[in-house]
């Protein structure tokens, strides 16, 4: 039943997004704009600043993720549908997992556009170890979204939610961003430091387990007014 509810919520979110395409368009546009601005600042005469690619990629993911989180829960606020979800006789953590999966999928779509663009503009060797890069991106996105989904749901009725979300989110997800940046930078070296990247991937996996577990634990009490 837990997985069925999570699947229902995720499918509903994706159906709504397929109809409106609002979040995917705005986040992709925002992420691309972000990378372009960095490219104008850091690429001189076709030569990018060394080791900048990984940081720029993860900063863009974090900014775009914050935008996606805000918009996703703004939808639930519009007709107070989050309250309707909370009223359903289902496990509330299952609702959280459904929302989390929807956001992770959206961000992975954004990353599918963002990563090749970063590779192109910053001469990043994204095909060095593609599976390891995908693993780093997925685990980093899960960790970031796990905390973000919890906070965005908590703040959905707060008047200053747009300001509060990044203030709460970034300090807590800094370990995830750092691990993502260091792991990706290790892969982007001329000779990829695979062991180092795997170490950062393992750390990201650890953060994912901690953040998802804590969020599942706290979602119900935090959502009860």
């Amino acid at each position: 039943m837990f997985l069925k509810v999570a699947w229902l919520v995720m499918r509903k979110d994706l159906t709504v997004e397929v109809r409106s395409r609002e979040i995917v368009y705005t986040t992709v546009f925002f992420a691309v704009a972000c990378v372009l601005v960095f490219a104008f600042a850091l690429v001189k005469e076709g030569r990018p600043l060394e080791d900048a690619a990984a940081g720029i990629m993860w900063i863009s993911v974090a900014f775009a993720g914050t935008l996606a989180l805000g918009r996703t829960f703004e939808r639930e606020r519009h007709s107070e549908t989050l309250r309707a979800l909370m009223l359903a006789p289902v496990s509330r953590p299952a609702i959280y997992v459904g929302k989390l999966l929807g956001i992770v999928l959206l961000l992975l779509i954004v990353e599918a556009v963002l990563v090749p663009l970063v590779g192109l503009l910053f001469h990043a060797p994204i095909w060095n170890r593609p599976l390891l890069l995908i693993a780093l991106l997925v685990s980093g996105t899960v960790g970031f979204s796990a905390v973000g989904t919890l906070f965005a749901a908590m703040l959905v009725r707060a008047r200053s939610r747009d300001v509060m979300l990044p203030i709460l989110l970034y300090p807590i997800t800094i370990p995830v961003i750092i691990a993502g940046v260091r792991g990706t930078a290790a892969l982007f070296e001329a000779v990829p430091a695979v062991d180092l990247a795997q170490m950062w991937l393992a750390l990201l996996g650890f953060f994912d387990v901690v953040f998802v577990t804590l969020s599942l634990w706290t979602f119900e009490p935090l959502m009860t007014e």
Binding site: L8, S79, A84, V90
Partner: peptide
């Protein structure tokens, strides 16, 4: 919660979904 029905002033409907999809979503959730 399975024995409570709540019609809020905010209606609790997803505007992007069809009438049938809205009802089917909540029916499955319940």
């Amino acid at each position: 919660r399975a024995r409570l029905g709540f019609l809020s002033h905010d209606l609790h409907l997803y505007p992007e979904l069809t009438a049938r999809e809205n009802l089917e979503f909540f029916a499955r959730l319940y």
